[in-house]
Design a protein around this nucleic acid. Structure first.
Lengths: 107, 107
DNA sequence: TCAATTAGTCAAAAAAACATGACCAGTCCA
DNA sequence: TGGACTGGTCATGTTTTTTTGACTAATTGA
């Protein structure tokens, strides 16, 4: 039995995935992560209008959603890198498709 | 000058498209619109937890973003239908890809 | 030892999104 | 003539998201 009455309230499967990339900074962060590892202070400097708290929150969410992985790099300047996870890589085609769409839509 | 208002670096082309589908009701509305025309009171009844205001806002935004078209049907019971626009149809592959992704991610 | 860089946390305020309930106007049918 | 259905709007309140500024704590270089 899928649904007892006629009310069709089936959830949109894409919804949770869209939510993972919703938020003021997440799309940019994900896109940058596609290009290379992310570092906190570097992001803070390059993303104009951003702030520590928002970036920290977004990075933490992307990490808890399993799209990014946080890695401590024990080298010259001890630091942290965020990079795409295996799951994150699965999102790349979606982003690419959206990019093509954005360049082909007139509005 | 490449852009007149260079307040922020447009680093992620997908960002504006993702924003079009962000919000509590928009993914569901879009998905349902893929299956057929939408009617206001019918949505209000079938989407549990929804309300007039939120649906009206979401529909108006989807319309102003050019994804949906609002059409007055001058028939038996005079009513309104929202259906996918040409631009809206371009988003279908993205939604399909997201659906496949959602069924293939263990998360 | 001092200062800068690393990557943050915390409390609070501001802004944006969402929900609630009252109301409205046209159509339709008896 | 009125009640129910259509598709909303409006004012208000609540909840969520985002920003601000102060603070922390370890590491590094001079």
């Amino acid at each position: 039995m899928t649904s007892p009455n006629e009310k069709e309230n089936k959830a949109c499967p894409a919804e949770s995935l869209l939510k993972m990339l919703s938020g003021k900074w997440k799309p940019q962060l994900f896109k940058l992560a596609m290009e290379g590892p992310l570092r906190f202070n570097s992001l803070l400097r390059s993303l104009e209008g951003s702030n520590k708290q928002s970036l920290a929150t977004a990075l933490k969410e992307l990490e808890s959603e399993g799209l990014l992985e946080r890695k401590i790099i024990r080298l010259k300047p001890l630091h942290v890198e965020y990079h795409l996870s295996a799951k994150g890589n699965l999102f790349i085609p979606v982003m690419q498709q959206l990019e093509q769409l954005s360049s082909s839509t007139p509005s």
